[in-house]
Each structure stands twice: as C-alpha cells, then as structure tokens.
C-alpha cells in the first residue's frame, strides 16, 4: 500500500536573494489520487510552492517530500521526468512537431521513437485532439489545442503526479470551461495526484477536491473540501475571497409560487429543484 501522502510540505520557506519573502512557513499534505488546488492572488507564493515540488525552486528552509522522499536528495532531472508539468502558455517546444512534443519525456528516457510516437497518438485521443494534428507545429494550433498538447505531454510518461501551473489562465472563457470539463473527465478516468494552482476561485471550487486558500507569503487561510469552505469559511478573508460577501451570497426568493435563487447583485441564477 503506497503512502497516502503523495506530497508533503514541511515548514518550507522561501526568501529570494533580493529579500522578498515568497513563502514564510508552509506545511501541507497533498493526498494521493486527488486534485489539490492552491488558490490565492499574486504574491501568495503559490507558484513558488508548486515549483518547489520539482526542484525548479529550492526552499530556503524546510523540506518537500514526494512519495516520502525529500526531493533535495533526488537528482532534479530524474525527478522532473517522473512528474508531469503543465504550464500557462503551454510551454511547448516551438521547433518540434506536436507528436514530438508529446513524446518528449519518453524520448528523453530513451524509449524507442516508434513506441513513444504510438503512445503520443493514444494520448492525443485521450485529451481530445485530432491525431491529424500530430504533424503540425505548436504555432499552427489554437491556444486551447496547445494546452491539450501540454496535458498530453505531461501524461506521456504516465507519472503519478501532475503539477499544473495556471494551465487554463491564458485561454478565453469558453475554451477554459471546455478544458476544465475535460480535466475533470480525465481525472475520473486516471485518478492522478494533481497539484493545481490558480487565482480563479470558480476554477478552484470546480476542480479541487482539497482546496487550500492562501494569503500573502504562502500563509494558509483555510484548507478543506470546497463544500466545507463554502459552508464554513474560517474568517472574513476566506468569505471575501470565495465571494460569500459578494456574488456568491445567494438568496432564495419565492416568485409566483416558485423558489428561485438570486445572486449578490440581484441576478437570477435559477430555480430551486430540490433541497438536500
């Protein structure tokens, strides 16, 4: 039975050479097989925390454990090859065909080209890309398609852990909603451990099984399931951040014998179909 703790942050801090304290003292367990979302505004240290997991950033103090092992003692290149990474603006290699981009990590691990390409084509289907796009360059794809390629690349070596750094932040709202739905579908199928960061609370509430709401400097305001946080926000900061003092402050009104729900600005959201 593998450890239920996929990632463990133990009192990590990060002070940059210019004196900026990105993270003061952060501890968290990221459970295996679930999506954990770190949500906070800029300056909350969420990107720094994510990048500590694959040693793109080294903590000033404290340790980060992946699979029970302190990453400081693991070769960073090997570590990164067993952790999928999806970033904003896709981070694809512009000079390599889509299929070669997806096959990057298996090829770096010396998997023969034919089997790496076969796997890449399977992944294109899995993430909803037409395999006919395999022989295009990333610049010939739309932003949404590029993000799908980014997800396929992250899955290519079948890692247990995926790090997602605001992956849907740079696409338009309609495409973002599609990609979010696609990620939920994939995650039902694959049950990976996903550490996802975003500044968008709606995205966090939709995707997260465990939600971590951050103040500045990586200070945890509240950790819990989305329902718990909405039902019982720890303080005014969390309530404000989640929108419980604004748009998500909903009111049930009875109009012509029907219960309807109205949001904070008076906009009707829908009818109450059932309670419970």
């Amino acid at each position: 039975m593998p450890d239920a703790r996929m990632i463990e942050f133990r009192s990590v801090s990060k002070t940059y050479p210019d004196g900026t304290v990105a993270v003061a003292d952060f501890s968290l367990v990221v459970p295996r097989g679930q999506t954990t979302v770190l949500v906070g505004s800029s300056g909350s240290g969420k990107t720094t925390l994510l990048r500590m997991v694959n040693r793109m950033v080294s903590p000033t103090s404290g340790e980060v454990l992946v699979d029970g092992q302190d990453v400081a003692g693991v070769d960073p290149v090997r570590l990164r090859r067993r952790i999928g990474y999806v970033m904003q603006e896709s981070g694809l290699m512009p000079h390599r065909l889509v299929i070669d981009n997806i096959a990057t990590v298996p090829r770096l691990n010396r998997v023969p080209k034919a089997s790496a390409h076969a796997r890449a084509l399977e992944l294109m289907e899995l993430v909803g890309l037409d395999p006919a796009m395999a022989r295009r360059y990333p610049s010939q794809l739309s932003g949404g398609q590029q993000q799908r390629v980014g997800v396929a690349r992250a899955l290519a070596a079948d890692p247990d852990l995926l790090l997602m750094d605001e992956p849907f932040g740079a696409v338009d709202p309609i495409v973002r909603a599609e990609l979010q739905a696609e990620l939920l579908r994939l995650q039902r199928e694959l049950r990976k451990t996903i550490l996802f960061i975003t500044h968008d609370i709606s995205e966090a509430l939709l995707l997260g099984e465990q939600l971590v709401i951050l103040r500045t400097g990586g200070e945890i305001a509240q950790v819990g399931a989305p329902l718990e946080i909405v039902a019982d926000p720890a303080d005014d900061f969390v309530a404000g951040f989640v929108g419980l003092t604004g748009e998500r402050r909903l009111v049930v009104r009875r109009v012509d014998g029907v219960d309807i729900v109205v949001d904070g600005s008076g906009r009707p959201l829908g009818q109450v179909a059932a309670r419970g």
């Binding site: 694959n54 793109m56 290149v77 090997r78 990164r80 090859r81 990474y85 970033m87 603006e89 981070g91 694809l92 290699m93 512009p94 990057t104 990590v105 770096l108 690349r153 992250a154």
Partner: peptide, 10 residues
C-alpha cells in the same frame, strides 16, 4: 519561458 519549460519537463 521556453528554456524554463524545457527544464521543468526534464
């Protein structure tokens, strides 16, 4: 962004 992405994927 490109070189950092390359490093991040391994």
């Amino acid at each position: 962004p490109t070189t950092s992405a390359a490093t991040a994927v391994g």
